[in-house]
């Protein structure tokens, strides 16, 4: 294993559209994918709102960037950790989130879910297991 590979965590704690952080975070993730690092995304607090289904932005004249999350698998970004407690607090369940899948090249290209719902304690473990934490 190349020792230069670092674990990057992109932390998303803000809702989409009200501010640009979610969109510009996604732009970093897409560019970052070209660097072949070990990438994970964390969605907690209002960040979980970024992943909900049925976003329609026609009425506000802003680009709907939520479909881009479904393309992350093509960039080998396949670990999207979503915090259960953050969903609960906001009256959401996993069913309210988009289906985001990737094809696992190590498992005969089987389709697997990219979203991994984790507890707050597990999220803390994910955060503590990183080399670089980028917050948005």
């Amino acid at each position: 294993m190349d020792e230069k590979i670092k674990k990057f965590l992109y932390v998303n704690r803000k809702a989409p559209y009200g501010t640009i952080y979610a969109l510009e975070a996604l732009e970093v993730v897409l560019i970052g994918a070209a660097f072949d690092q070990d990438v994970s995304l964390a969605f907690l607090d209002d960040g979980v709102f970024q992943l909900v289904k049925n976003q329609k932005t026609d009425g506000i004249g802003v680009k709907n960037f939520s479909p881009t999350f479904r393309a992350l698998g093509d960039y080998d970004v396949t670990k999207l950790f979503v915090e259960q407690e953050s969903l609960d607090e906001r009256g959401l369940t996993a069913d309210d989130l988009q289906d985001i899948i990737y094809e696992d090249e190590d498992d005969d290209w089987a389709e697997k879910p990219s979203i991994r719902i984790v507890s707050r304690a597990e999220m803390a473990d994910v955060m503590a297991d990183q080399d670089v934490v980028l917050s948005f």
Binding site: V11, R13, M127, Q130, D131, V132, V133, S135, F136
Partner: peptide, 11 residues
Amino acid sequence: AADHDRTHAWL
């Protein structure tokens, strides 16, 4: 920042 392994900014 130097003494800990990583920094996590809670923005």
